[in-house]
Design a protein around this nucleic acid. Structure first.
Lengths: 165, 165
DNA sequence: AATATACAAGATATATATTCTAGTTTTGTA
DNA sequence: TACAAAACTAGAATATATATCTTGTATATT
């Protein structure tokens, strides 16, 4: 599994799912507005939201930032292969990437690559610096295959439920 | 660029960045608490947050859901190559994937692949159904290289700023 | 030095969160 | 089917928080 947390699936009814969808698109909607949209009163909304939080269905509420506005104009995706796959080497690599601020996302993979990294940097120069001076300083790294994002078609990463009816 | 929105970089001072970091880790923090953490009063916090929202630095506030808790136990990453790259064919493919609910993220790439997809499904059976009956129904698709997420090392997708000092 | 900007502090009206009570409806099950 | 439990409505009370404004002070900018 790719989640460290509790793996149990929670019993959710349609009202729960509707609440989740609303909060996924607007974490700051008021209970009153939520209640109005679901034809309920605020009491059950309040209790259900608290329950969803307590059960870990809702992990957190976060602000989404426009990367371009904060000077991160280039997104790259890197598929990484390592030389050796011993437990220690894997742990060392993971610790390594976890300390690189440009790495915004990292997954350990099963398949023809070992790790997938999402990188956010200002521009191509900064990317080169990332590759040369930050990523490749791990001596166990075998090779990296990078792709550059030209446009975002869909991004509901934060929102895995939203698009399911 | 990979953002459709306004591309201008905004002038942000240290206080703005601190506010952003706080809201990235907790979109529901009160202005009062924010003010306390930054040794300010609520007035400048209120005005700065509104300004950040208005300028599009803060795109939105969302709830992050635990996929496992809602029955999405398998994450896959797919690198896709298309047969033909005419404008129409690209648009058709993008429309195609945008309508597949399992596709949680999709980027148009420069590099040796055309598209990167992040897929969230219940299990491997559901993934097969996605590949066979949903993704490959686009006749312009050449090939797909899939990897499966074993563990999440880092995920600050929603939070591109957080890890920069 | 003059001006503009940002902040502190305090006041106020409105909105929200949180918790209750009591009565009603729905649901699952013995 | 009938009962008990669970969930809901409606109304209300209280504590907090939000959203604005004002006035005076400190800090920067020109």
């Amino acid at each position: 599994m790719w989640e460290t947390e509790n793996h149990s699936t929670i019993r959710l009814d349609e009202v729960d799912l509707k609440i989740i969808r609303q909060l996924q698109s607007n974490a700051r909607i008021t209970n009153k507005d939520l209640a109005a949209q679901l034809n309920l009163t605020t009491t059950p909304i309040y209790e259900r939201v608290k329950r969803l939080e307590k059960m870990g269905v809702i992990n957190s509420y976060v602000a989404l930032i426009n990367p371009v506005k904060v000077g991160k104009g280039l997104m790259a995706l890197c598929m990484v292969r390592l030389e050796k796959h011993t437990k220690d080497k894997l742990a060392a690599f993971e610790k390594h990437v976890a300390n690189i601020p440009e790495v915004v996302e990292c997954y350990h993979l099963a398949g023809q690559y070992d790790y997938h990294l999402k990188i956010l940097v200002r521009d191509m120069n900064t990317f080169q610096d990332f590759i040369v001076n930050k990523l490749s300083t791990n001596e166990n790294l075998a090779n990296v295959q990078s792709s550059f994002v030209m446009s975002k078609i869909t991004d509901t990463t934060a929102i895995p439920m939203l698009r399911n009816s």
